[in-house]
């Protein structure tokens, strides 16, 4: 299956990523943004590569969930919210689901 090539580049609505999520052979980085141990809704979540360069951004769901499709490497997930910012590192290798939580 392929995505329509004329569809846009906007980040899709974010949702939970279950443990049995079908990554379709891709590196998937998924997780939750929290504040004080509770999910923080609607934070802006940025994926930065090993050089700190911007790779992508989504807006987390009402439950703080986010998901990126990446490649093997070292990544930083950085969350921005009116309440503050936070970040977490994640290292990926073979295609599968990688979990990361970001606390703001």
């Amino acid at each position: 299956m392929s995505v329509q090539v004329d569809s846009g580049c906007a980040a899709p609505a974010q949702e939970a990523t279950p443990d049995d999520f079908d990554t379709r052979g891709q590196v998937v980085i998924a997780g939750t943004v929290t504040a004080g141990g509770q999910p923080l809704p609607n934070a802006y979540v940025r994926l930065l590569n090993a050089d700190g360069e911007f790779a992508g951004e989504v807006q987390a769901s009402e439950q703080g969930e986010f998901r990126f499709y990446a490649a093997a490497g070292k990544w930083t997930v950085r969350a921005l919210h009116a309440e503050g910012t936070g970040e977490a590192a994640v290292e990926t290798d073979a295609p599968k689901l990688y979990r990361v939580s970001v606390s703001v």
Binding site: M1, V3, V5, P12, E53, A55, Y69, A70
Partner: peptide, 21 residues
């Protein structure tokens, strides 16, 4: 992004990568 430019990815990192081109 550099990975799209290099040809490693076909779309931004928030999207699935399957594509025709």
């Amino acid at each position: 992004s550099p990975d799209e430019f290099a040809g490693k990815l076909l779309a931004p990192a928030h999207l699935p990568q399957e594509s025709a081109q």
